[in-house]
């Protein structure tokens, strides 16, 4: 066996296989150079082991433990998917609320739920577009056009003003409330 200090180091740390260990042991008995290296190595690590060990205060240990308890609690909270659960619930809730808005009348492409009522001077439609069509022909045509425009307009306020004007005109023409 050749003099390999790396092998002596591995032998010193008991990281050699059975066969290697035997080889190194017999080599150490024969080779004074490797023997010296081995004893110096032992001496070095015995000295190193005598080093003073840093000690932590009780107070600091307590501080670490408290931090770790917090971390454990946070992990437990994260463990249950509250955030996902809440997001899913919010999506479901908003879907339920907005369902009527999404439900369109296929014939008119306008919502089939009451949109505007006519009450005194506040002109808000309350009828469905199909009913308007069936009951009052003139109203139906103008109303239908209006409704189409209403939904195309970007400003809600403008639409309401326009709606009021239109409805006033219908009142005059028909001489009766719409509904």
């Amino acid at each position: 066996m050749n003099c390999q200090n790396e092998d002596i180091i591995r032998f010193f740390y008991k990281e050699t296989s059975g066969e290697e260990t035997e080889q190194i042991k017999s080599h150490l008995q024969e080779c004074p150079c490797c023997q010296a290296f081995y004893y110096n190595l032992e001496d070095l690590f015995l000295t190193w082991k005598r080093q003073e060990k840093p000690v932590l205060s009780e107070e600091f240990s307590g501080k670490i433990k408290r931090k770790l308890y917090q971390e454990l609690d946070e992990q437990k909270t994260i463990g249950f998917p509250w955030s996902r659960f809440l997001i899913a619930a919010a999506i479901l809730f908003s879907l339920v609320l907005s369902w009527p808005l999404l439900k369109f009348d296929q014939k008119t492409t306008l919502p089939s739920f009451p949109i505007v009522k006519t009450q005194g001077k506040t002109f808000i439609f309350s009828g469905e577009i199909d009913q308007l069509r069936k009951n009052v022909r003139k109203v139906k045509q103008t109303e239908y056009r209006f409704m189409q425009r209403y939904f195309k307009k970007p400003s809600f306020h403008k639409s309401i003003v326009s709606l009021q004007k239109k409805t006033k005109r219908f009142h005059k023409k028909l001489e009766s409330p719409l509904f």
């Binding site: 060990k53 000690v55 932590l56 240990s61 670490i64 433990k65 770790l68 308890y69 454990l72």
Partner: peptide
């Protein structure tokens, strides 16, 4: 277990 971990391995 946290206490045990800290006490055993902090040094």
């Amino acid at each position: 277990a946290v206490d045990e971990l800290v006490d055993s391995y902090q040094g």
